[in-house]
Every structure is written in C-alpha cells, then in structure tokens.
C-alpha cells in the first residue's frame, strides 16, 4: 500500500493527515499520482491542479514530479517549508 501524508495547509484543506491506498494501476511516478488525486475533484482538484504550490517527498527525501514511485512507498505532499 502507498502511504500518503499531507502537511500544513494541505492537511487543513483536505481534512486528513494522510491515507493509505493501493498503487493505482498504470501509475509509476509522482506526476501520475498527482493526476489521480486531482481527478477526485473538490479540494483535491484545487490543490493538485496547482502542483507549483506543493512540494513532494518520496520515502522522506525531496523528489520531483518525475520521480518514480512503487507500492509501499511513503509519499508526502506539503507546502514549501518555513522553519528556522
């Protein structure tokens, strides 16, 4: 199962800290997963329709939308970081 995590205002907007789901058929990249999430409509469409606003990590490392993903990966979506 994919483990998907949402942080900061993404979590607020989506109303959940994360979810688990099977790797959707035909999806093998972050970009593919973003299209699947976007297709859900509502807040998902608003957020994942603007990928320039979000950052992604695959297995706790920063990744690009071109990064490949596999079953059992941990994928996190979040806004640009603001610590320090």
């Amino acid at each position: 199962m994919l483990r998907i995590l949402y942080f900061a205002w993404l979590r607020d907007r989506l109303g959940r800290p994360g979810e688990t789901l099977p790797l959707p058929p035909g999806v093998d990249s972050v970009a593919g997963l973003i299209s699947q999430l976007h297709a859900r409509g509502g807040a998902y469409a608003e957020i994942f329709g603007r990928p320039e606003l979000i950052r992604v990590a695959v297995n706790q490392s920063f990744a690009t939308n071109a990064a490949t993903i596999a079953a059992n990966d941990e994928i996190a979506f979040f806004p640009p970081v603001t610590g320090g």
């Binding site: 942080f7 900061a8 990590a57 920063f62 996190a76 979040f78 806004p79 640009p80 970081v81 603001t82 610590g83 320090g84």
Partner: peptide
Amino acid sequence: LKTHAPFWKR
C-alpha cells in the same frame, strides 16, 4: 534549515 528542513509555521 529555513528552506530544506520540513517545518511549517502557523
């Protein structure tokens, strides 16, 4: 830290 450590401030 400010740009690459995953912290967020509200």
